[in-house]
């Protein structure tokens, strides 16, 4: 669910737009440092993965289902700078090709999902990695914590923006409580999906998980002496 045009006033939209543009500019430079000239194809394919992943329905029961938001997953798998770029590109595509999320609200949506969502997830993930034992099995758990916290954090950031530039005088306390409560539930789902995906990757290809790279020793090519019979 993305913020459409006209939900927040023009000043707030322009303000978040400037903020988003600044962070994206920094991310472009940092991501190039991480991935050098592989940035474009790899970030492009991670963006596709997030976009397609959002379309995979996870059944909740009683005929309803939810889907991944992907900010935490992208941050843990590709690092926060690349994740911000991927989420930004996904949001541009959704706004321009699917009319999902307003064009004037693009800065707001990037701020909420690509900056707050990604960086809160990354911060909590790093904190979790610090506190948990230094083992590969801690990585999915830390990722789950990041995913769980990032969703209500983005929702509360939205409430903050609504307080600044919202259209109707809604009592902010109850708006924050409702948004917070709903998104804690959504965050639980996000945490579980993130943990499952990261867990499956850590057990098969830990070298691809940016957030676990420090735990993986480089596999050296080893040529064993052939024992002559």
């Amino acid at each position: 669910m993305h913020v459409p045009d006209g939900f927040l006033d023009a000043q707030t939209s322009i303000g978040t737009g400037v903020l988003a543009a600044g962070v994206v500019a920094v991310s472009l430079r940092k991501a190039r440092g991480e991935l050098d000239d592989r940035t474009a194809p790899l970030a492009g394919l991670v963006a596709v993965f997030i976009f397609a992943g959002q379309m995979l329905n996870f059944p909740v029961g009683a005929g309803t289902s939810g889907h991944l938001l992907g900010g935490a997953l992208a941050a843990v798998l590709a690092g926060p700078w690349v994740a911000t770029l991927c989420l930004t590109v996904v949001l541009i595509v959704q706004a321009l090709l699917f009319a999902d999320g307003g064009l004037t609200a693009l800065g707001t949506n990037v701020t909420l999902m690509g900056i707050v969502g990604v960086w809160v997830a990354w911060g909590i993930f790093r904190l979790g990695r610090l506190l948990l034992p230094k083992r590969l099995s801690s990585v999915p758990l830390a990722a789950a914590l990041g995913g769980f916290v990032s969703v209500p954090a983005a929702a509360l950031a939205f409430v903050g923006l609504y307080a600044v530039g919202g259209a109707a005088p809604i009592p902010l306390g109850s708006l924050a409580a409702t948004m917070g409560a709903w998104h804690v539930v959504i965050g639980l789902g996000e945490a579980l999906i993130t943990a499952l995906v990261v867990g499956s990757l850590v057990s098969t290809r830990p070298d691809l998980v940016a957030g676990a790279r420090d735990l993986v020793e480089a596999d050296e090519l080893e040529i064993r002496a052939v024992v002559a019979a």
Binding site: L56, L196, V197, L208
Partner: peptide
Amino acid sequence: VLGRSLGSMFIRSF
């Protein structure tokens, strides 16, 4: 199962 599917999709994409 769905989570593992997403995992292998990431490997393939990457």
